[in-house]
């Protein structure tokens, strides 16, 4: 498939998921507990599970493109594990809705969903820290600007704000104390990857462009939007917040897949180019020579 087709298709799905999410949010306000609301929610759980399953597969392929025992390989394995746990979580949520347990066992069996949620967040945070750590080894992601401190402050401000609303959260009434604690910890657990996202954002700015920077930007958007969705979802009484929260929440899984796909494209592009250099180095170097000559003479398409 042409290299631009898949991202365009994925962006399209992000849009569709956001629209479906907005519809879900509106149904939650207008007709909570109705059959269409439940069906839409079940469909969205399955679709999101598909997105995370796709991301898992690509993450493992990306991990395979790094040396054994390298930090980046560990990072992508952790991210793959996080996506796998997210698949389990969404499948479990689908099962809960399909069986009607959300009405009969909400505070018992259903509340156990906090376990995969927390595990997935911990794995994701660990993976992202490992990605950041790899970049620091070549001197990137170490210099922060004034604007970063402001964003840091905003992210940290979200935590107590969401924490104060923990009683409103879905599993706050669980009969298991451990689940209630895990639910309370979710703002912190979501804020941790968002803080790493700040460092990744700085790295993407330092990169100045390229396919890898695009991937990092999508990853940063995914992490920050998740935190935003949790914040908005903490105000179930505000209809606009509910719609916005669901819009963001149901589209972030696809945004994650997009981020991972952009990263995989780096490997594919590099591999194709390396093969061409192996097959016919002179022809490739003649092409580069041509492009450099054009660049040195000011051709706009080749200026950086």
């Amino acid at each position: 498939m042409p290299s631009r087709t898949v991202p365009a298709m994925l962006w399209g799905i992000v849009g569709i998921a956001a629209s479906a999410g907005a519809t879900h949010g509106w149904l939650l306000v207008a007709a909570p507990g109705s059959l269409p609301t439940r069906w839409l929610q079940m469909s969205l759980h399955l679709l999101t599970a598909v997105a995370y399953a796709g991301a898992t597969s690509i993450c493992l392929k990306i991990a395979g493109d790094y040396r054994d025992r390298s930090t980046m390989r560990l990072a992508w394995r952790l991210i793959a594990a996080s996506a796998t746990v997210a698949v389990i979580r969404h499948c479990f949520e689908w099962l809960v809705l399909a069986t009607g347990w959300n009405e009969t066992r909400l505070t018992t069996l259903v509340s156990l969903r906090q376990i995969p949620i927390v595990v997935s967040l911990i794995l994701l945070a660990a993976g992202l820290v490992a990605v950041w750590s790899s970049f620091t080894s070549i001197g990137m992601g170490l210099r922060f600007r004034g604007g970063d401190i402001v964003v840091l402050g905003i992210i940290l401000a979200f935590v107590p704000s969401i924490f104060s609303l923990r009683e409103e959260m879905s599993d706050a009434q669980s009969v298991y104390p451990i689940i209630r604690h895990l639910q309370s910890a979710s703002p912190v657990l979501l804020a941790a990857p968002a803080l790493v996202a700040l460092a990744l954002h700085r790295i993407s700015r330092e990169m100045g462009g390229g396919q890898l920077a695009t991937s990092l930007r999508c990853l940063v958007a995914f992490l920050l939007m998740r935190l935003l969705a949790l914040f908005l979802g903490s105000y179930p009484g505000v209809a606009a917040f509910t719609v916005a929260s669901r819009t963001v929440w149901w589209s972030v899984g696809w945004l994650f897949l997009l981020a991972v796909f952009y990263r995989w494209r780096v490997t594919v592009s590099a591999s194709e180019l390396a093969d061409r250099y192996e097959a016919d180095p002179e022809a490739e170097l003649a092409g580069v020579s041509r492009a450099l000559a054009l660049r040195s003479q000011g051709h706009p398409a080749l200026q950086r």
Binding site: D65, I138, L212, A274, Y277, E284
Partner: peptide
């Protein structure tokens, strides 16, 4: 090596092939 560390072995291989065939 530095490229492979960040962008993966495929990108490292590209640098290696192109660099040596110069």
């Amino acid at each position: 090596d530095a490229t492979a560390l960040i962008c993966g072995l495929a990108a490292g291989r590209l640098v290696d092939r192109a660099g040596l065939c110069l």
